[in-house]
């Protein structure tokens, strides 16, 4: 019941954002109906485009899961972007350098991506757990380091001869298989969905998940109830970073088949926002991630079919975030707070 009410409220917020977006589009002298129709056409107009939407959603979804794990535990991992880059880069290294049979190669590359993501958050995690140092700042700053560091390694150590600065392509044995002939959409989508379902049950049904969620909602109570707070903080941040690394690994192994500069700019941040809009609920994060993916993929057709810039989508996305989060704020004045909602779905 509450689920439907809140979904209804979100829809109103969404509608409001679209209306404001229309006004802006009119303001720049374009036709909003054309814009939205093109957007839908670009996102769903053909099987290929639907696959494209799912393709765009996948990294946002997995990055969103990384953020969910942290947020539910009361930790703010804003460094998913950096973990994604490290994971993507590490997967590429394993992918192109080790000739192995596929049943070893693909899992190994994934695991190394996961480890790279976890390693990248290990220092902020340690300082948060041991000294209560603010993880928001440390994880954000490491984003820049990760993007520049992977770029440096790519250019100066592992660059494929000639052309753009990118690593050599990974071997076929490490590639995540695609789902259809006509799209790069791959099994990464199912990894994202499986993670969402897994996390849903983890937080609702397991002892460890219950303790994590309790820590997120009242850390002093969790401590009192016997949760080893420091160990738990460290562990949950590592898990969050690991999933962030996996998001990058999936992009490398499933889509790009190499690591390059401009690998996946913004996907980590989109994941964080998707999780925030979904109140850190993994299942709802799937929906918000799909929505962001739809905007991204739909916007590509705007460039080709209209005279509008794709950037209008950035504006639209910002509007949606504003309206939906305003709605969440207003919703808090009622009886269903964000904290309570996590028990309702």
């Amino acid at each position: 019941m509450r689920f439907f009410r809140s979904t209804f409220e979100q829809s109103i917020a969404l509608l409001l954002a679209l209306v404001i977006g229309s006004l802006i589009i009119v303001g720049i002298g374009e036709n909003p109906i054309v814009a939205y129709a093109t957007l839908l056409d670009g996102a769903f107009g053909s099987p290929q485009r639907i696959a494209g939407t799912l393709l765009q959603s996948t990294p946002i979804m997995i990055a969103g899961m990384a953020a969910c794990v942290a947020f539910r535990s009361g930790l703010f991992n804003i460094g998913v972007e950096g973990q994604l880059y490290m994971g993507g880069f590490a997967a590429a290294l394993i992918g192109f350098s080790l000739p192995l049979p596929w049943f070893l190669h693909l899992p190994l590359a994934m695991i190394v991506a996961v480890i790279a993501g976890a390693a990248w958050i290990a220092v902020p995690a340690f300082f948060r757990a041991r000294y209560n140092a603010n993880e928001v700042v440390s994880t954000i700053l490491l984003n820049y380091v990760a993007v520049l560091l992977t770029s440096y390694f790519t250019i100066f150590l592992f660059k494929r001869p000639g052309g753009w600065s990118e690593t050599p392509p990974i071997l076929e044995s490490s590639m995540l298989p695609t789902l259809f002939e006509f799209s790069r959409l791959n099994y990464g989508l199912f990894i994202g969905l499986a993670l969402a379902v897994g996390l849903h049950f983890y937080f609702l049904r397991t002892v460890s998940g219950f303790e994590s969620g309790t820590m997120g909602s009242n850390q002093r109570y969790a401590e009192y109830g016997g949760v080893n707070i420091r160990a738990k903080i460290f562990r949950m941040m590592l898990v969050s970073g690991a999933i962030g690394g996996l998001a990058g690994g999936v992009e490398t192994l499933g889509v790009h088949h190499r690591f390059m500069e401009g690998f996946a700019p913004g996907f980590g941040f989109d994941g964080v926002i998707a999780a925030l809009l979904a109140n850190a609920n993994p299942l709802l994060t799937v929906i918000t991630a799909l929505f962001f993916g739809m905007l991204r993929s739909g916007s590509l057709l705007l460039e080709v079919d209209t005279t509008m810039s794709r950037e209008i989508i950035t504006v639209l996305q910002a509007l949606i975030i504003l309206c939906v989060s305003a709605q969440v704020r207003i919703g808090r004045r009622g009886d269903a707070t964000a904290g309570e909602r996590r028990w309702k779905y």
Binding site: G42, Q48, R49, G52, L55, Q56, P59, R184, E251, V255, H256, M260, G262, F263, A264, P265, G266, F267, R296, S297, L300, L301, E303, V304, D305, S309, R310
Partner: peptide
């Protein structure tokens, strides 16, 4: 004449070529 701005996301490039 049509100009297509690719932006900076590697994930978008292929779809943009296909659209064109």
């Amino acid at each position: 004449v049509l100009l297509v701005d690719t932006g900076n996301r590697a994930l978008d490039y292929e779809e943009q070529f296909i659209n064109v």
